[in-house]
Design a protein around this nucleic acid. Structure first.
Lengths: 131, 131
DNA sequence: GGATATTATCATGAATATATGATTAATAGC
DNA sequence: GCTATTAATCATATATTCATGATAATATCC
């Protein structure tokens, strides 16, 4: 469902939300058991997106830039995976739309919208006990 | 949602169901506007899976091996994409399960199950006007 | 200002998905 | 058997994702 990268991102953000204070890439990578430098790039991207803030040097690391309860999962995940956006027609018909639907359109829409709703409505705070 | 390959497979199968008689790779590829040899491999795989039958030589080509109304979409798509299978924990926790759920478990399950239900319950016949 | 901790960046590689072009094998019709 | 048709296979190429290792830049602390 999610790419590895997006899953790393989500897990890292949840870890940071749970933790409340900054953590270094090393620490997060160790905790999540994911490749360090790859995670580094992923977190850098989240910082560019304004989801995290980063600080170098001693006492630095990454932390959430946003209140976890205001941070939708979609925002964490969409830099890496296209979850929402316009749903491509399942049958690849370019002209397929709500008004000119392919035979799969409505049912497929109903099913796949559940997934995008999940990421659009749920927040990081929803998924963290402490927060 | 679906990989290109799985989408090709689905579209080809729907084309064949709509058509009712055998069609050659050339014909299908032209109709769907997808790469010929790549589609060829994809269809070959579907033949191995018992979804299609193939015949060489004049008058040959691919055709459905199954009544479209008895052919679940899942069967067309699962050789290429893992749709159903066990849903990986969204947070990557190996011990996550219904009885020992991560915080995202139930909601994520409800959402993503809609998608697998779609492929598990709908048939090719459902998506073809004529059939 | 030197040592250390940490992110940011660069260069590279491996694996997989997607795609193309050429060739081989089987079948049908004559 | 010859020819045309068509799937099956092979060799190769390109793009993307995932990953590793090394280095540079920046901040803190003494």
């Amino acid at each position: 469902m999610l790419s590895h990268t997006a899953e790393y991102a989500l897990r890292a953000v949840l870890f940071l939300a749970d933790r409340g204070e900054p953590a270094s890439v090393d620490e997060i990578a160790k905790q999540l058991q994911v490749p360090r430098n790859y995670l580094s790039k992923t977190l850098y991207r989240l910082a560019q997106e304004g989801v995290l803030t980063s600080a170098r040097g001693k006492g630095g690391g990454f932390r959430l830039a946003v209140d976890p309860h205001r941070l939708k999962l979609l925002r964490v995940v969409e830099p890496f995976d296209q979850i929402s956006g316009e749903r491509r027609c399942l049958l690849g018909r370019p002209q397929c739309s709500d008004r000119n639907p392919c035979p799969a359109h409505h049912q497929w829409r109903a099913a796949s919208e559940r997934v995008s709703e999940f990421f659009r409505d749920r927040t990081v705070g929803d998924l963290v006990k402490g927060a």
